[in-house]
Amino acid sequence: MPRWFYQLASPRWCYQITGKLLPGFAIAALLLIAVGTVWGLAFAPPDYQQGNSFRIIYLHVPTAYMAQSIYMTMAIAGAVGLIWKMKMADMVLKCCAPIGAWLAVLALATGAIWGKPTWGSWWVWDARLTSMLILLFLYLGVIALNSAIESESTAAQATAVLVLVGLVNIPIIKYSVDWWNTLHQPATFKVTEKPAMPVEMWMPLLLMVIGFYAFFAVALMLRLRNEILRRERRAGWVRELLQQQRG
């Protein structure tokens, strides 16, 4: 195991390193999302079939990606927490869940807003929409279980098991389009193929996706720092830190 892996286990080290990383990620997120939004909403060419209503994909696709990626992050954190009993992994797991749940809500909401002019209805029982809804339910279950158990370490372990069980659902989400093949269009980006969109359309989308990853990092670090301070409130270094900030 490399040295940084052990350092990750130390809340103090994590608090310090996230403090240093935070401004960089915040600026990156702000810039990327600002440029992506303006470019996507104002300058990208309108779609030849859907007109301007397609522009919501600049919000919809990143939120949907993030909702899935955050679940993966949670699962990895859960596995690390179960295997190495690492306190930081428990905290990451706990902090990820609300962010992921909100992004899943956003993905569903933007999808509904896009569906109204395009499909003629707010909601369609299509495989992909349904799987995103299930993903939201999984997030809500994770949050509920984590808050129901009082002991922090027990809550983290139980949640980790639940997240890993739910991970079975992620491939179903990813490949449900191919399985059931209904109304929803296939994934926009494929690693193996060139995107079907022109460059000036997918470039802002790419910026938005990267921007949302940076935003997730910022949101996670902010929550994580709070959680570290709350859990380590009796530790010497936290008291010193608070005293420094007061004095």
Binding site: T130, F137, A144
Partner: peptide, 25 residues
């Protein structure tokens, strides 16, 4: 799985269905 995770809780019933139903789909 859900029953095992919630057995230690006094009011596990509703929580149990919340955890398990998505996995039943």
């Amino acid at each position: 799985i859900g029953a095992a995770l919630t057995v230690g809780l006094r009011k596990g019933g509703v929580l149990l269905s919340l955890l398990v139903l998505p996995l039943y789909i």
